[in-house]
């Protein structure tokens, strides 16, 4: 039954998720800068607050006071709209991820997820598929050749990698026999983590998701060395901050989805006795996953655009397809 308490519960959980993502975004930037610095034998930002923990506040403050420039020949409405519609998909994609087992808070049984729809995986695909609009529109509306090229690259890249990404989801889905994230986590509790059962799907997910969020070494749309800053070349101030925020929230999102699909989500030892451990396990997995993403960025140069497309269409897509077919056949035979 839908009652007022349930609506309040939804609102509170949504708020917690959004606050987690925005605060997480701030600290992922610090995490990335510090970790990159250690890899590069530097120290990294450590002046603002203890261990540089106030650095994101300083960065945010700086960006707020920056002048907001809109190029003279830009399409002003879409130019303003683009950063907003880039952030929204990033913020809502995690709504279907379970954080832990249901537990009792203030005498009330609370599920630790916002929604357990039976089409969670399709929901994730739908949201990721529309996240490209912001980038394309930003590139187009800036009226700048570099930005336009960046937007075009982003579009082509995302379409190419979405297929492989969607097919990589299908491995865990076929094994768990459900499109619900909660069911996928439960299925992993009873068997092995899917990174063991589905290594090919995990690798395809890992690379396709990096390409999907335009991180190094697939950061073609913003390729600093070629396109200066690509689609957000003309953005400044808070509008730029929104793009920046979207990029890091997407990082958190793919880490969380990856951890849920392939690393058992909130699963871990003793989680059935102490439900509080669920969110902690998930957070730890996400942090490690993020660390790998940063490590990848520190280690590899960017691959060239045409080779990226070749990799997407000629290697990743057929491999993902093959993986789905093999998994399906095996599941049918074993059952």
């Amino acid at each position: 039954m839908i009652d007022a308490a349930l609506i309040w519960e939804w609102i509170i959980k949504s708020l917690i998720l959004i606050i987690f993502l925005t605060v997480g975004f701030m600290y992922v930037t610090v995490y990335e800068r510090r970790f990159l610095a250690r890899i590069q034998s530097r120290i990294g930002p450590n002046r603002a607050g203890p261990f540089g923990l106030l650095q994101p506040a300083a960065d945010g403050l700086k960006l707020i006071f920056k002048e907001e420039l809109i190029p003279a020949n830009a399409d002003k409405f879409i130019f303003l709209l683009a950063p907003i519609i880039t952030v929204i998909p990033a913020l809502i994609v995690l709504a279907v991820i379970p954080w832990g087992e249901a537990m009792v808070i203030f005498g009330r049984q609370v599920n630790l997820f916002i929604s357990d729809v039976n089409v969670a995986v399709v929901y994730i695909m739908a949201v990721t598929s529309i996240s490209v609009y912001g980038i394309t529109l930003a590139g187009w509306s800036s009226n700048n050749k570099y930005a336009l090229l960046g937007g075009l690259r982003a579009t082509a890249q995302m379409i190419s990698y979405e297929l492989a990404l969607g097919l990589a989801f299908m491995g865990p889905v076929v094994l768990a026999g459900s499109l619900s994230m909660v069911d996928i986590v439960r299925a992993q509790q009873s068997s092995l983590w899917y990174v063991v059962l589905q290594p090919a799907a995990f690798l395809i997910y890992f690379f396709a998701s990096i390409a999907e969020i335009n991180r190094a070494p697939f950061d073609m749309p913003e390729a600093e060395q070629e396109l200066t800053a690509g689609y957000h070349a003309e953005y400044s101030g808070m509008k730029f901050a929104l793009f920046f925020m979207a990029e890091y929230i997407k990082m958190i999102a793919i880490s969380t989805i990856g951890a849920t699909l392939f690393f058992g989500g909130f699963d871990g030892p003793f989680v059935d006795q102490i439900p509080w451990l669920g969110p902690i396990y998930l957070l730890a997995k996400v942090v490690i996953y993020l660390g790998v993403l940063i490590w990848v960025r520190a280690s590899w140069p960017r691959i060239r655009y045409d080779r990226l497309m070749q990799l997407g269409w000629k290697i990743m897509f057929p491999l993902a397809l093959l993986n789905v077919i093999i998994t399906a056949v095996v599941v049918v035979l074993v059952n």
């Binding site: 695909m125 529309i130 609009y133 394309t136 529109l137 579009t155 379409i159």
Partner: peptide, 9 residues
């Protein structure tokens, strides 16, 4: 997610 993105592209 797919068709209109291609149109826009």
């Amino acid at each position: 997610g797919a068709i209109m993105v291609l149109f826009l592209f």
